[in-house]
Design a protein around this nucleic acid. Structure first.
Lengths: 250, 250
DNA sequence: GCACCTCTGTACGCTATTGCACAGTGTATT
DNA sequence: AATACACTGTGCAATAGCGTACAGAGGTGC
């Protein structure tokens, strides 16, 4: 196994794309570094399974993972997203061992795998690391809260606009996924997504072709989301972004 | 100010109705006890305000508090509930100082007020207390997650049935509140609540009269909720209930 | 006892979204 | 080049829930 420690030695300068790793001080990072295993994260890799022990947590450098809850009866819905601004393993951060929800890769990317036990131990040793990761859990809560709001009050088109803002967490302006997939994430009908995408496209906010959606007008999408986008992101900025120079991206 | 410490000295035996206080070991409780100030919690007391510092947290012995998120544009929706199974101040538990959402009393009761600084200090000192409260934060997350699911996939009548199960956290089988209030909590129209209540009443699950709703058939309500009730409660049992003999109530 | 206010019951037309179904189009396979 | 499959586009009747409006019922204050 090649660890990031060894890579770092060669490269002298560490440059993580993950915001949490970036936000850590050198001391905290040093606790984790020797155990970070670079790994390709391909769709549809499952990172955590509901009601199952979490052996490893994943820190994303690129790509996106969805946290979904299952409705008894087979229907799923997305309750959170993890990109390069975060990591999986909220339960581990909170001292638990079982995941409450399934988390899987939704857009391929890469990142690091870290044994849950190492993370727990490092948090034990570093107060600053605890502070950062607890702050991150708060942002996850804010994200879920914001999703409750969107699902409760916003129309499909607004929710779709909100969702498409995940492109904040990706590189480039194109998101690769199918309408079917979006439908599951939003908990709506596939055909409904198709129609809503056309509406957004008609307004010049996106361009949608087979399996891909290009974001043309970021600001316009935010407005289209009618307030359902923003609160969670503001919370991230407040809690974690202050450690970072580069948030929001671009 | 009369603290619980002094009361305890008189009474010899402590008997808290709050499940967290009950689940704590004697040592952890001892850290908090001298600072717990008994307090009446009347509707519509605001316990936390969004984007404001949290000076005190509240540990409920009876009554119910709602955690609501605001949709820009004035519409609110409930994202969590706190009763005698929990406490306010999730942000404080996670080392923060600002609340993300508003929390207010929804059914009058009583409980204890505890300075946030004391809680932080106590958590600093006791590993067991940290463990318990982090577990509680996990249950809050589970609750919010479950709400996403319900808002996303469940019909009004099902969501109402799910909501009415809050009576788990109250004493007696009657809940006192108006249709208007329920409508805000569920993020739906007042008239819709009226109709849905009649449907449930028609099935013999509840009896609804002015300002009050009596639960007649707990199990029936759970079935009516079609799976949107249960997951969060199971999580509570797993994470915290094991410390308690008396969960679920009755 | 009367006036007033809050809360509940009910109605009606409207909109968003669903479930279902099927046709068309792009991409990969052989 | 032909075939197969996955994905997208579209239509239609059905339904859930909305906005609005108003009448009746229950409780409170004078």
């Amino acid at each position: 196994m090649i660890t990031m420690r060894e890579i770092a030695m060669d490269e002298e300068q560490l440059n993580f794309r993950n915001d949490l790793l970036q936000a850590m001080g050198p001391q905290e990072r040093e606790l984790l570094l020797p155990h970070l295993e670079p790994i390709a994260l391909e769709v549809p890799l499952i990172l955590e399974m509901e009601n199952s022990s979490v052996h490893d947590v994943y820190i994303l450098e690129s790509g996106l993972a969805s946290i979904v809850a299952s409705f008894p009866g087979g229907r799923d819905i997305e309750v959170g997203i993890v990109g390069r601004e975060g990591m999986t393993g909220a339960a581990v951060i909170l001292g638990g061992d079982q995941a409450a929800n399934r988390t899987f890769m939704q857009v391929s990317g890469h990142g690091f795998k870290l044994p849950a036990a190492v993370l727990s131990q490092a948090m034990e040793e570093s107060r600053a690391l605890r502070g950062l990761l607890f702050a991150y859990v708060q942002t996850l809560l804010a994200q879920t809260t914001s999703t409750v709001l969107a699902n409760g009050h916003a129309k499909l088109e607004e929710r779709l606009a909100r969702w498409l803002m995940v492109h904040d967490r990706t590189d480039g302006a194109t998101i690769w996924l199918t309408h079917e997939f979006l439908a599951v994430m939003l908990g709506v009908r596939r055909a409904g997504v198709t129609v809503a995408l056309h509406l957004l496209e008609g307004k010049g906010l996106i361009r949608s072709t087979r399996r891909q959606i290009a974001i043309l007008n970021r600001q316009g999408l935010i407005e289209e989301a009618h307030g359902s986008y923003g609160a969670a992101e503001e919370e991230y900025r407040r809690l974690i972004g202050r450690h970072l120079a580069r948030w929001p991206p671009s």
